[in-house]
Nucleic acid binder design. Structure first.
Length: 683
DNA sequence: TGGGTCACGGTTTTT
DNA sequence: CCGTGACCCA
């Protein structure tokens, strides 16, 4: 027990030992949050709490793995059962595997990603942007609004449309037994809500619950947690409201700001001692974040001494910026700094290109986190679709993706016929083409018919393979049957794509060897919850978005693109406080040296734009403030035409200022609405 | 059916 | 600027 508490400060000790009742740990950046959580898990175990009663929820797999390792290393004895420590989504998946039958569904469902979701929506005929529909559906789900309610509640024609698409989308998912990311949280909640006994039982099972990164939970996750604590109130949430950066994905900062209203007798412990950064860095971060109003008052106290001043780097162009930073990094390396200790961070991925070029020119090894994700590459998704179809032949969605890949002469016309035929028979496309061949033959020409027959035969063979359990070699049979690799060999970027395919085959075999009793479904679900955060830890400079840098720390940090418009990123529905929190997160990644860089101009979307310094630089005390407020107000005038995503085109009736925003009174086809200027575009 | 050309629009950020 | 989607012709 001593060994666990020994290395903790007083606040951390208190947090670790406070195991009963609701507890909010406000853990500032670099205040030893992970250490506190892992010590707390260890402390619970040491106090005889059975491992199976402890549930710890995190945001990324990476955080989950790291915490598991650290917690277990604090315990000497071997555990027969490891406490469940996973992401919210993984927890949802495990729960649904056991309980989805309560919703009258089979547990061989498949998880779809955002791209799949958009494809499904796109396959309906729509006249609104897919991204809008997708995000509205997400919103409905996160607010527990079902399609019927959505339709009943929708007022405007476009919302009516979206609500109907939502209904169609849900029907599609159900029919194909698909589950999207939102469902992984929403469906468990629905089940627990319908079955109070199950809620109680589940809550009894997990008597000690901990939640990491609580500032980034959404409403639905909060409700789910509420269900999980029906039988007790032993919930410990850990987070930092100043680091809430996922509002765009539905995270609700109120969850952490108002946690004490959720349960009686909430104990609050603040961890305000920062062990990571030097004082100059902290001062800069503290100053910046102090401009936010919506936050728990607190500040970080350093322990490392003053350190070097935070440096502002000014450049004319992004190429100069990249060159200069690459040179500086080279100098650090000459001084003996480790590649792993250096990071370049930015607000938007588009800025990575120039930096990569600069690092390449200087011959500096770097790793990009994010960008095009491995599992989202077209060639990988094709193979995944084949596997999904083998796992579940009724998955029309996957079938349509690969039925003509590699090309077998099956175009839109044929596929439409198959779809119509399947619809008439009320069965999936696959069962239609395998079981109604005589009928099919009458409908389509010989050539496509032969292609389909051959496709079905090969698939049947693979399905049989799966059923007899030869999963390890299934991937080779798949390649032998369909020649996906050789197909991509002929396409552009062949080399890279083939390498990706080979890597994927390797991952598949590896998974099947390591998990000998796993099913194909297990594999598919496992990879769909994987992010590529978990990269190989070779020695290199890290280049990534600030979001990707959450939870990480580096000795030397460069933040680039500190210009109005890029950071803060200004556009539809910008939340300036969240932008500022992102700045805070970026600054507090640095341990010893922080460099903030801006450029006078940048080449973006095909043209070069002149840019002014980010307001965050003056707010952090780095440049003397010459804040131009309401810069974009001037653009709007009475009588002007503007366009809104949902309301369409309207005419401006009046322009006014509210706080720092421009508010417009707009006439949309006879209806007058007050709307913030940031939500409309000039026509 | 599939390949080629042309116009458009767009990017935050991720489980 | 680059990738995607619509449209047209062989």
């Amino acid at each position: 027990m001593e060994s666990i508490l020994n290395s903790l400060n007083d606040a951390q000790k208190e947090a670790v030992q406070q195991i009963d009742g609701p507890l909010l740990i406000l853990a500032g950046a670099g205040s030893g949050k992970t250490k506190t959580i892992t010590s707390r898990v260890a402390y619970l175990l040491k106090n005889g709490i059975p491992p199976s009663s402890i549930l710890t929820l995190t945001f990324t797999n990476k955080a989950a793995n790291e915490m598991r390792n650290r917690a277990l290393s604090l315990i000497d004895e071997q555990l027969s059962y490891t406490p469940l420590l996973c992401t919210f989504h993984k927890f949802g998946l495990l729960f649904l595997k056991h309980h989805i039958s309560h919703l009258d569904r089979e547990n061989n469902f498949v998880i779809i990603d955002t791209d799949d979701k958009k494809r499904i929506i796109k396959s309906f005929d729509i006249d609104l942007p897919v991204s809008l529909i997708a995000s509205e559906i997400s919103r409905y789900k996160n607010n527990l609004v079902n399609p019927q309610e959505a339709i009943a509640g929708a007022q405007l024609p476009n919302f009516k449309k979206i609500a109907h698409l939502y209904q169609k989308y849900e029907a599609y998912l159900r029919q194909n037994n698909l589950v999207d990311f939102d469902d992984l949280i929403a469906l468990p909640y629905q089940i627990l809500d319908q079955k109070p006994d199950l809620a109680r039982e589940t809550s009894e099972r997990y008597r000690y619950i901990m939640v990491d990164e609580y500032q980034d939970t959404n409403d639905l996750q909060l409700m789910l947690l509420k269900k999980l604590t029906t039988a007790h109130h032993n919930i410990c949430v850990v987070g930092d409201d100043d680091q809430s950066i996922y509002g765009w994905r539905g995270a609700n900062i109120k969850n952490i700001l108002e946690f004490d209203r959720l349960y009686d007798d909430v104990k609050v412990i603040k961890l305000e001692t920062n062990y990571r950064s030097t004082d100059h860095i902290l001062e800069c971060a503290n100053k910046l974040i102090s401009h936010n109003r919506n936050r728990h008052q607190k500040s970080l106290n350093g322990t490392k001494g003053k350190g070097d001043e935070v440096k502002l780097l000014s450049h004319d162009t992004e190429n100069q910026e990249a060159l200069k930073i690459a040179q500086m990094i080279n100098d650090f390396l000459d001084e003996g700094v480790n590649l792993n200790d250096i990071a370049v961070l930015y607000r938007i991925n588009a800025l990575s290109r120039s930096i990569e070029e600069g690092l390449n020119r200087q011959g500096i090894a770097y790793k990009m986190v994010g960008g095009v994700k491995f599992y989202e590459r077209a060639e990988i998704k094709d193979i995944i679709s084949y596997l999904r179809l083998i796992a579940n032949p009724n998955d029309d969605f996957s079938l349509k993706r690969i039925i003509n890949k590699p090309k077998r002469g099956l175009g839109k016309a044929t596929i439409d016929k198959l779809q119509a035929g399947a619809h008439d028979q009320r069965c999936s496309i696959f069962s239609y083409i395998s079981e109604h061949q005589t009928e099919l033959k009458k409908k389509i020409a010989k050539k496509p018919f032969d292609a389909i027959t051959r496709f079905v035969d090969l698939m049947d063979h693979l399905i049989a393979k799966k059923e007899e359990g030869s999963l390890e070699t299934l991937i080779d049979d798949l390649e032998d049957s369909f020649g996906i690799k050789s197909y991509y060999q002929m396409l552009p970027d062949a080399q890279e794509r083939v390498l990706n395919i080979e890597e994927f085959y390797g991952l598949y075999r590896d998974f099947m060897i390591r998990n000998s009793d796993a099913t194909l479904d297990d594999f598919l679900n496992d990879i769909s919850l994987q992010s590529d955060q978990d990269q190989i830890d070779e020695s290199s400079v890290s280049v990534m978005s600030i979001h990707a840098a959450k939870g990480l720390e580096f000795s030397y940090v460069f933040v680039i693109g500190l210009e109005e418009g890029f950071f803060p990123l200004l556009g539809d529905g910008t939340d300036i406080e969240e932008e500022r929190r992102l700045g805070y997160v970026a600054f507090t990644r640095a341990k010893d040296a922080l460099f903030l860089s801006h450029s006078e101009s940048r080449f973006y979307k095909g043209k070069r734009a002149r840019l002014s310094k980010s307001r965050f630089l003056s707010e952090a005390g780095l440049v003397k403030g010459s804040l131009k407020l309401n810069k974009d107000t001037a653009g709007y005038k009475k009588g002007m035409l503007v366009k809104h995503k949902i309301f369409g085109i309207g005419r401006v009736l009046a322009v006014s200022k509210v706080k720092r925003e421009t508010k417009l009174k707009i006439n949309f086809a006879g209806t007058t609405r007050d709307i913030l200027a940031s939500f409309v575009q000039k026509v």
